[in-house]
Design a protein around this nucleic acid. Structure first.
Length: 269
DNA sequence: ATGGTCGCGTGGCGA
């Protein structure tokens, strides 16, 4: 008996404003699980009915007013919902669930890592310090038991780790999201847990790969000054089940777009 | 060219 599961991750920058294109994405791609970031929506105002109508009755949300917020919506039942706080802040930046896949539960972590502000110096920019502290807590937690079982870690990690995850490695070395302290720390989280970078398993390291294009560009597609800020990681026990990955770049050009494109991963047992 | 554009929610913050 084979099972097939698709998981999508998308920073949608307001779930309420973006509802029309989230619906378009669901109708086109029909992922089994959709992990959203930057929902910018208190839990009481989350548009659950719209997702139920589209065939996603299982909804786990961790939202707050105005900022941040993550949600995992699913066609399959969700269990063991966990919302972890980081850095002793009230920020809504993580939610984890179990989803049935083949004969065992699959842990799905959905993350929205702090962006870190503009100045890449923790001494003068507390937001950058918060980002590094947040990532240090991720490193301490996301290994051992968390990666010895089938697990996926997705979301907007706000770091483009490799040379060809940005349009110009040289131009961005001092730009938050691609500084050595961030890229080395993200790599440390990943390797410490044994996580596998699912996107780079399908795209060679020498090939450009982006998931985000700034709103500020006059013509984002022509300039194509992107960064790979969104990620899909899989734990070693799940590695052999990873079958495909796709960045839906077209969604960046839809009506009233998010500045992030969705990433879809396919698993087969 | 150190600008530029978004979303939240109504003045400025965060991205």
């Amino acid at each position: 008996m084979t099972d097939r599961l698709t998981i999508a991750t998308w920073n949608i920058n307001s779930v309420r404003l973006r509802l029309p294109i989230v619906e378009k994405f669901i109708l086109e791609q029909a992922p089994d699980v959709l992990c959203l970031q930057e929902t910018k929506c208190p839990d009481a105002n989350f548009p659950e009915a719209a997702f139920r109508k589209l065939g996603y009755p299982h909804i786990a949300i961790n939202g707050q007013k105005g900022y941040h917020g993550v949600a995992t919506i699913s066609r399959r039942p969700l269990a063991n919902i966990e919302k972890r706080g980081f850095c002793d802040k009230g920020d809504a930046r993580h939610i984890a669930v179990d989803v049935a896949f083949s004969d065992s539960p699959l842990r799905v972590h959905n993350f929205y890592v702090p962006a870190g502000g503009d100045e890449p110096d923790a001494a003068i920019n507390p937001k950058f310090g918060h980002k590094l502290d947040f990532m240090a807590e991720m490193k301490a937690w996301l290994n051992g038991a968390e990666t010895e079982r089938p697990a996926v870690l997705v979301g907007d990690l706000n770091v483009a780790p490799y040379e060809h995850d940005v349009w110009s490695h040289k131009a961005l070395l001092k730009i938050v999201s691609h500084t050595p302290v961030e890229t080395e720390l993200l790599e440390a989280i990943r390797s410490h847990g044994g996580w596998i970078d699912a996107m780079r398993r399908f795209v060679p390291m020498e090939e450009k790969l982006y998931t985000w294009w700034s709103y500020r560009a006059r013509d984002w597609a022509a300039a194509d000054k992107g960064r790979r800020l969104d990620h899909v990681w899989v734990s070693p026990p799940l590695a052999d089940r990873l079958k495909a990955m796709r960045v839906l770049r077209a969604a960046r050009g839809w009506d009233k777009p998010s500045d992030h494109a969705p990433v879809i991963a396919v698993f087969e047992e």
